[in-house]
Design a protein around this nucleic acid. Sequence first.
RNA 1: CGGGGCGUGGCGCAGUCCGGUAGCGCACCUGCUUUGGGAGCAGGGAGUCGGAGGUUCAAAUCCUCUCGCCCCGACCA
Length: 600
Amino acid sequence: MKPQKTKGLLKHGFMYIFQPRNLHKMKETIMLWSKAFIPTLKEVPADAQVKSHILMLRAGMIRQLSAGVYTYLPLGWRSMLRVMDIIRDEMDEIGGQEVFLPSTTPLELWAETGRDVGMGDIMTRFKDRRGTELALAPTHEEVITDLARGEIRSYKELPQTWYQIQNKFRDEPRPRSGILRVREFLMKDSYTLCADEAQLHEAYKLHEKAYRRIFERCGLQYFVVGASSGMMGGTGSEEFMVPSESGEDIIATCECGFAQNLEIAESFPTSVEWVSCEKAKVHTPEQRTIEQVSGFLKLPQGQLLKSLIYITQSGKAVMACLRGDHELSEEKLQAVCGEKVRPAEAEEVLKLTGVPIGFLGPIGLNAKLEILVDRAVDSEAPFATGANEVDYHIVGYKLTDISEYKKVDLRMVAEGDTCIHCGKPLNLIRTIEIGHIFKLGTKYSKPMGATFLDEEGAARPIQMGSYGIGVGRILAAAIELSADGDGIRWPITIAPFEVVITPVNVADEEVMSVATAIYEELLDEGIDVLLDDRDARPGVKFKDADLIGVPIRVTIGKGVKNGVIEIYERQTKTTTEVSIEDAMDSIIDLWDRLFEELSE
RNA sequence: CGGGGCGUGGCGCAGUCCGGUAGCGCACCUGCUUUGGGAGCAGGGAGUCGGAGGUUCAAAUCCUCUCGCCCCGACCA
């Protein structure tokens, strides 16, 4: 899987499309550090909190324009281009054909699938001069489906795999963590058009394989987990998750291979030591939270019944009841309700039940709303819950005391839970989502009328799949995984430069002539090399080289007098002295080795 | 959208409580010395104190409004 040595920028489609220019000339300027625009920062910018954000700013890779909107500087963009190179390579490998879809889309198109409403404020809308309503595409299912319905006629034209690398616009309510959650970002998205479910399954599996190869080549550790389909809809999806403290998602994994996003994960809960008690109503003045009530009644939190009221998108109220020590998964509740839900406001709860939050319970509320009970609540066990009366709770009641309820899966997996397949304890891991693959089925093709004629001449909706990768998130995730106290440690496959040559003193002619000779030879080999020809102190150069994370540094200094230079490996911080004659071979050997470590 | 914090040279910050006309470190420019892990000395340039309005003889500082950014929550492929 190692690229041929004339790879790098020369291969990029982007370069050909947008910048047909003399690449050799560009190389000569950009690969001299003194001429390159690499604005490194010694201090940590005040706005950055997470490791990858801090380092991308400090290494001069990105700059912020506004909340969740970033400019990629030359160093950052070079790494982005290399990630895209790998993505294109692997997408082409599974028969993908690259396209380029517009970002400006008629709002009408989104109305066809109902996502003009479904997307809500995430989708930015505006009008053109004629008053036509437009939207900036947050994703491209509708655009692709529109293309397909106009062009695909026969089963003989299927399957198709179309992909693009495009900016997506999502007006996130809260952009954060640098480049991890942004409002404008580069995504590789691909779409498969298939004749039937078997074909779709095959296309889906091919994507999974391609994604595995892409992330492996990018040097990432990752989990593939079962996931919620969210606003994409469809019949099934899996996410590719990189473990990181800076991530926003939590996944549950088991050594038996089970792995799911916490949003949908299932598990066996820990058990509760019940305290037996008789039915009673207890005065519990000002005791509202689970902690307060549990402490006041001297009952374990797991013996309380937590009652939460939610309002569905269509305006229906439901009560979700869980063990006091468990958390509700809103994703699961949404799945049960079949529509979006939101927590009820305090006033709504009061109006609906006549009871303020804190003293709610399911007993006697059937007439007012639907009651859903999480299946982890033991039917036999006595529980304590709100009495639906201010300052009172009831104890010793059982589920059978609720006249009507549905038992469903509502709870979020918690620390200490065990695996539903093998019974071993689950691990909860915080992660960054870098890819997500969906089986969409006919969710878009049906309402939009994207059909083809099968062998019998019958019109059938196209079976679709949709597959995304966050290009920028790959960079952030790689940094999160491998950075150390001195800066970034790039996997060589996505480093902005593969080698940096550091002449310790540019005023020393002998040093410079050796440095320049090695630089030019490496260029001839097709290796991405940066020559640090700045008239700066060695400490500055070493610190900067460590910070921007170039995997191989060739230091040329006092050893030259004895015919010796040094090769420094950023990952391990090990230095090897070699003779000038052996330098090229040693550098290329190390270069080869670093690539080989990242291929299967 | 709720809660909290912050906007002062390019970056990091002090000054705000207690009003008196802006300062420190880094970076930058010039010169000299220096050159193996973010150099030293000397000189220099650079700030609508986020914006608007108000109070006052006088506002970075007090009051009102407003914009922006960050964090937590909500939300989220």
